[in-house]
Design a protein around this nucleic acid. Sequence first.
DNA 1: TATTGTTATACTCTATAACTATA
DNA 2: TATAGTTATAGAGTATAACAATA
Lengths: 167, 167
Amino acid sequence: MTQPGGLDAAELGGFFALMEVSSLLQHAVEQQLRSAGGLTNIQFKVLMSLLEAPEGQLRMTDLADSLVVSRSGLTYQAGLLEKAGLITRTPSPDDERSTTLGLTAAGRERIAAVLPGHVDVVRRLLLDPLTRDDLGALTALLSRVRDHMREAPPRSAAPRARRKAEQ
Amino acid sequence: MTQPGGLDAAELGGFFALMEVSSLLQHAVEQQLRSAGGLTNIQFKVLMSLLEAPEGQLRMTDLADSLVVSRSGLTYQAGLLEKAGLITRTPSPDDERSTTLGLTAAGRERIAAVLPGHVDVVRRLLLDPLTRDDLGALTALLSRVRDHMREAPPRSAAPRARRKAEQ
DNA sequence: TATTGTTATACTCTATAACTATA
DNA sequence: TATAGTTATAGAGTATAACAATA
C-alpha cells in the first residue's frame, strides 16, 4: 500500500492510461458511426457480426451472447435494424423456434459506407502514433491481459446460459 | 489495403485487443462498484474527483466539463448523491450563481468501502498478468497514444465551452 | 419440460430547451 | 447580456418477467 487505494503510481498510471485511451477511442468511434451511418455501436457490431459470420447468418441467442446483451435488448436492436432495411429476420429452417438474422444488400452498403471512416478514426487516433514494433508490443501485452481475463472471469460475469443453473 | 476495411491483421489485432480488454475491465469495474457500494461509474468518478480536488470541493460546471457530461446530467447525478447523503451542494461563497460540491463523511466512507474491491478488480484483471516491466511498457505506449489523442482532438469532440461560438 | 424469441413494462441515464438568479 | 445551475421533458437503451410457439 503506497497510494490512495493500494495501487502505486505505476499501476495507477497504467490503469488510467488504458481507461482514458479506450474511452476516447470509443467516444470517437461512436460519434463517427452515428454521423456517417446513423448507427450505434451495438448496431454496428450486429452488422459486422453478420458480415463475418460463416454463412452470413446468426441466431438471436448466439448473437446476444457474443455481444453480451440480453435477448430482449437484442430483439429491440434487431427490430430497429430490420425496420431500417439493413437486416432480415426469418425463422430458422432447422429449428422453428429460432430466428436467423441475415444482412440485406442495404446492410452491406451501410457497412461499406461506414467502414472507411471507422478505420480512419482508429488509424488516426490509435495507430498513427505507434510504430510497427510498438503496435506489436502493445498487442502482445493486451493479448496476454485478454487471455488472462478470459481464463479468470470477472467473478460474477456469469455466462448468460448458466443463469438457470444458479438458482 | 489488405484486410476488410483497410486495416491489416496486426492493426486489427491491436484495435480489437484494446477494445476487448477495456470493455471487459470496465464491465467488471462497474459491476463491482454497483454491488459493493451501489454506485455507478459516474457517481464513483464524482466522488473520486471530490476526494482528489485541492480543497475537496468542485464547482458543477468544472466537474461536468472534466467528466464530459452535460450540466443537467450532472445535476441529476449530484441530486442522487446528495439524496444518498454522500455529497453536499452549497452556493459558492465568491459567486452566488455557482454551486460547490463537497464530500460528506458518509461519502468518504463510501469511497473507503468501495475502493479496496475496485483496486482488487483492476489488479486481478489487468495487473496480475503483467510484470513490472510489462506494465511500464504498456503505460508508455498508451501514454503516447493518449497524448496524441489529446493533441489531435477526435474531430468533432468540440469542447463544451465553445458551443456558443459555433453557432 | 426446456428453450427461443417477443412483448409488456419499468427504470436509468442523457440531453435540449426553457427558466431563475446572479454577475 | 452573459453565465451557473435547475427543471421539465422527451428519447434511447436496457433488463426482468410473462408469454407463445416449438423442441
